[in-house]
Structure formats: structure tokens, C-alpha cells
Design a protein around this nucleic acid. Structure first.
Lengths: 233, 233
DNA sequence: GTTATCTTGGGACATATGTCCTTCCCCGGA
DNA sequence: TCCGGGGAAGGACATATGTCCCAAGATAAC
């Protein structure tokens, strides 16, 4: 994580996403712009949530570990998105872990300033409501998707999410350094079963595997299998 | 549905739940108190959401039907809870159907007045944020619960939710006139499989069945099976 | 280089769940 | 009363998924 001390770029991001007005003059000076490298951890489940982050560039991966120690993918998110918003409202620790799935830029602001200057700012509150209700709807969809679809569809969806970065065509189709065991946890199945499904995908020429790495060969047919991509955005 | 034209009782409910201050003087006159009988439909998925409802007494059942026509239970909710809150913020139709699972009292207010008098009311906005983030956290839990637990646990949880009404001990353990086919859809499984699990519960003396009705015999052991009750509140 | 260890992929089997179909029972209509 | 329709329970079988374990290649320690 690196702070980008460039007020102009920060202002540029605010304008680009049309959220200049959600931070009033009192809060504005307390905004900071941060940069994260791909794979870098942004926040960890259980840590005290002291900052509200606004994702303005790049893609992040949100995951959660249950009490029994099982990890689940929640979603991949791109701008415009908030991190720590629920936690700010509820005054709780981070519910999930978030890491950068690509190079990422975040705007961060300490909850202290939100409390102090934002608690009565209808513009900010409405922004939070918008963001959170959108999240809620997606979570709602995810619930049905997971309940109604087999691992096959979930894996297809996951592969589509992770294998494509619009900003860098070189990476297309390359499943990066994610261990397959992690992937299994992330889509909510066992490593064993994941292997079975990958095997099947290979036979059908949808993907290619070589020692721990997966290469997507046929995005279109994967998309058909996934139905709609539940992990995206 | 019947309107209860009793401003005092309405005020009483607001106080009881400590939400007197979330509706400002402009909105207050537009509040109405409604009463629903057990089983009565409160709103239907896909209908235009014109009102925000606050559940102040009783229990409601929230369900959702997917595009493929499969119904899923979302949750059971008791006061204090909002219905149509997400829809109000997003300006969308009802995402779910809600029906009274017991005699229910709701406070209703037309979105028109919320827009007109509440859009800049930080108190109201913060109330919505609180309610919605709470909902979000529960939905989050439900997601994991459904992904991680077999039908057995979900049924146990469902039976506990539906078979107990604190306010009327006579109904304890009686699964009312819900068709088992509905129950199957509600917990996200097939009717056939539901029968299997019920059969197993019978063998273990957890419940008793007689021609379409289920009677809970051992709440404690059911609770153990359910882990934590995901459909409640 | 050799051995102990670890990771990866996959076999064998058990369990969970879905689909299709049959049987039984109740109830209304002729 | 008798018959047909429709719902309810369950049998048979297929599929999805989990658990345990093993074999082969890769890695690390010595």
C-alpha cells in the first residue's frame, strides 16, 4: 500500500465517478488516495474497521472465513464500490477480507471524520444507502445462485471473473498464482470435487490445466455454463 | 388488511421501538397503522413498491421466486423490521413477497412523502442505514448457512421458526396449513428429498407426521441439528 | 545423491440430493 | 355407491458432492 499524494488525481477520481458532492468541505481534507499492488491485502476479517474506502480503480476480491475455518468467496468488485461501509454504519469489525485482484486505487477516510462531519450529511448518507442497497441486491442474487446451481456453474463463473482483465490483454485466460485449494474454498466446495469438475472442463476443451494452473480456452461456452456471472462487479 | 385508525396506538408503537424521532413532523401525518391476519399477503414480488412498511408487531415470512420459478425462503422477521426499504432507496419493484406468519401490525407510509419530506432527513436516513445493514449481515449469514449446511439442518431451522409462537402456546409444535410442497421450495430442496428427511426425523422421534402435518416433539435436539437458526428474526 | 516431505491429481466409496414414476388414499361428481 | 382426479408418500435410479486415501512428481534436508 502506498499513499498517492496528488490532490488533483483524487479530485479527478471523484469527478469521474460523480461523487464529488458526497464529501462535504469538512471531510474533504481528510480524504487520502491509496494504491495497492495486485494480490495485496486491503483489509482482514476481524480487524477493527477504522476507515471507509471507496474503490475508484481496479478490481478487488472479497472473501470470508466461517467460524469452522472454511473460506468462501463473496465477490469480485470494481469501481464504484465501498469497503468498510457496512462496518462503519454498524460500528463493527471487518466482516470480510479484501485483497487487490489487480492494481487498485482507493480513496480512504477515517471513520472519525465521517462521524464528526458526515453523520448529518444527507448527501453522504444517501450515497451509503445507494451503495449498500446495491450490495444487498447482489448478495441476494448470490444466495439464490449458490443454492440453485452446482459447482460446475460456480466454477465457470469464477474462471470468467478471474481470467480476464480488460486493462491487460496479456493476462487473458491465465489463472494466476491462486492455489487450486484456495479456489475450492472460494467457490464453496472440496478440493477433490473441484478437481473432478476441472477434469470435466478439460475433456470438453473449455480450459487447459498444467500443474496447478488453469488456462481458459473457451470463454463463450463457459459463460453459457455460468448462466450469469455471480462473482463479477 | 385493515387500517387501524388509532393515532395513539401508532404513537405507542413508535415509542415502544424508540423510533419516534425517525419520522419528522411533515411525514408524521402520513403514517398509517395496518393490521394483517395470519397468512395474509403483505406485498408481492414484482409489484410496484409504493410504501415503506415498518413491522411493529408479529412475524412475517419473506420469500422469493427465481426466474426459473423456484421459490426460496428468505427469512422470518419480527419487529423491528422494515419492508420496502431497499425498494424505496433503489426505486425498484418489490424483490420479494411478504406474508403475515402471525397476526401482524405494520406502520405504512407512501414513498411520495418519504421523497418529499425525508430525503434530507438524516435521522430517517440513518434509520434506513441501520435497518438495511442489519439485513445485509443476516443475508450474509444465510448465504454461508445455505452453502455449508445440508437440507437436514435447514429443515430443522425452518421447523423451529414456524412451530413456535411465543404469544400463543397453543400453537407450539404445530406446523400449520403450509403444504409440504411449499416447505420444500422454501428451504430450497425437492419435495421428494424433504420427505426423506422428514422420514428420518420421525424415526429419530424429533417430529411426528400425519397426513401433511408435522408436529415438533423435541425442540432441543432440533436446535442442535440446526446449529443456529437462520430463518429467525 | 538419497531420503523424508509436500503438493497435486485422482481412485474408491459414502452421502446428499434430484428426477421420474408408482401406489395409496381422500374427495367430489355422476 | 362407484369412478376418476388429484394430492401425498415413497421406491428406484441417476447425479452431485464429500471423505479418505494413495501414487507420482516436485522439493527440501542432509
Amino acid at each position: 500500500m502506498k499513499e498517492i499524494k496528488d490532490r488533483e488525481q483524487l479530485a479527478h477520481y471523484l469527478e469521474m465517478h460523480q461523487i464529488t458532492s458526497i464529501f462535504n468541505a469538512n471531510i474533504m481534507p481528510h480524504l487520502a488516495l491509496y494504491s495497492y499492488e495486485q494480490g495485496e491485502r486491503i483489509c482482514s476479517q476481524g480487524d477493527p474497521a477504522e476507515y471507509l474506502y471507496i474503490l475508484v480503480k481496479g478490481k478487488v476480491k472479497v472473501s470470508n472465513t466461517s467460524a469452522e475455518g472454511k473460506a468462501l468467496i463473496i465477490s469480485f468488485k470494481t469501481a464504484l464500490e465501498a469497503i468498510g461501509d457496512i462496518e462503519y454504519v454498524q460500528g463493527i469489525d471487518f466482516m470480510n477480507s479484501v485483497e487487490a485482484a489487480s492494481p487498485v486505487h482507493l480513496i480512504g477516510v477515517h471513520n472519525r471524520w465521517l462521524h464528526q462531519y458526515g453523520a448529518s450529511d444527507a448527501e453522504l448518507l444517501r450515497f451509503l444507502l445507494r451503495i449498500i442497497t446495491t450490495k444487498f441486491c447482489m448478495k441476494s442474487d448470490a444466495l439464490s445462485f449458490n443454492l440453485m446451481n452446482p459447482v460446475e456453474a460456480r466454477l465457470a463463473s469464477y474462471l470468467l471473473s478471474i481470467s480476464y482483465d480488460e486493462s491487460d490483454p496479456r493476462f487473458n485466460g491465465q489463472l494466476s498464482a491462486v492455489s487450486l485449494r484456495d479456489v475450492a474454498n472460494l467457490i464453496g466446495t472440496s478440493y477433490r470435487h473441484l478437481n473432478r469438475v476441472i477434469h470435466k472442463f478439460c475433456e470438453e476443451d473449455l480450459v487447459e490445466r498444467s500443474r496447478g494452473f488453469i488456462c481458459v480456452k473457451d470463454r463463450e461456452r463457459l459463460r453459457a455454463l455460468a448462466g450469469h456471472n455471480i462473482y463479477e462487479t
